[in-house]
């Protein structure tokens, strides 16, 4: 564990808590894309399939449970909570998740780290699911970014949520650089490239977020 990874995990945790705070306290999910939340639930479900088989540390298991629990409860709130669901603007959230999930699944089947396991079936399945979750996480924010461009006035909590979500992966990139130089054989092109793509997708959001912060004006993305 290094400071970059810890900072990344804490930023990721904070993004989830900001979103839960918004939904739970003001009972509103205005401006939040349900599609992105559902994609994130799929990302965590496919990423942490081995949560009970491969134990790494109490921290690791606890964080996995938090991410799984929070992502699924956010989806539950937005779909079924009688007050929250009213503030969900489905006409603005029209991105079709399957056009993201299918290519990621095919890509995961084609390009995944060579597996050195004996029983090809289970471990291969787990590896493909893990790789799928990496590719899917890289693009999961797209429905949310599209929705932000359509929603004229982005409220602060939503802006902070997206900013923290982007920042966490940027911190992970620093973590990978650090681990590359401090650990031998730490080379994971798939993780690195998907993490880079993911962070680059936030580039224009970061730009406008920084501008709104610097000029102290409301955050607005150009249509």
């Amino acid at each position: 564990m290094n400071i970059f990874r810890l900072a990344g995990d804490m930023t990721h945790l904070l993004s989830v808590l900001v979103l839960l705070l918004k939904i739970h306290t003001i009972k509103s999910c205005a401006g939040i894309s349900l599609k992105t939340q559902e994609l994130y639930a799929v990302v965590f479900a496919t990423r942490y399939l081995d949560i009970f088989t491969s134990y790494i540390s109490p921290y690791n298991t606890m964080m996995k449970l938090i991410f799984l629990g929070s992502s699924f409860s956010i989806v539950w709130y937005m779909r079924y909570h009688k007050i929250v669901r009213r503030s969900y603007d489905k006409d603005q959230d029209t991105f079709r998740p399957y056009i993201l999930m299918l290519p990621c699944l095919i890509l995961a089947l084609l390009i995944n780290e060579k597996f050195t396991f004996k029983e090809i079936s289970t471990s291969f399945f787990l590896f493909v699911m893990w790789t799928f979750s990496l590719y899917l996480e890289a693009v999961a924010i797209l429905p949310q970014l599209v929705m932000l461009q359509r929603t004229r006035n982005i409220d602060n909590l939503t802006g902070q949520y997206v900013f923290l979500l982007g920042a966490y992966r940027a911190l992970y990139i620093l973590n990978w650089i650090y681990r590359y130089f401090t650990e031998e054989h730490f080379v994971h092109w798939i993780t690195w490239i998907s993490g880079l793509v993911q962070t680059l997708l936030y580039a224009d959001f970061f730009y406008y977020y920084f501008q709104s912060w610097k000029n102290n004006v409301k955050l607005q993305l150009p249509a």
């Binding site: 995990d9 491969s54 790494i56 964080m63 780290e113 973590n175 681990r179 054989h185």
Partner: peptide, 10 residues
Amino acid sequence: VKQESAKDEL
């Protein structure tokens, strides 16, 4: 089994 080093991350 040696944990896949990238898989020790979240």
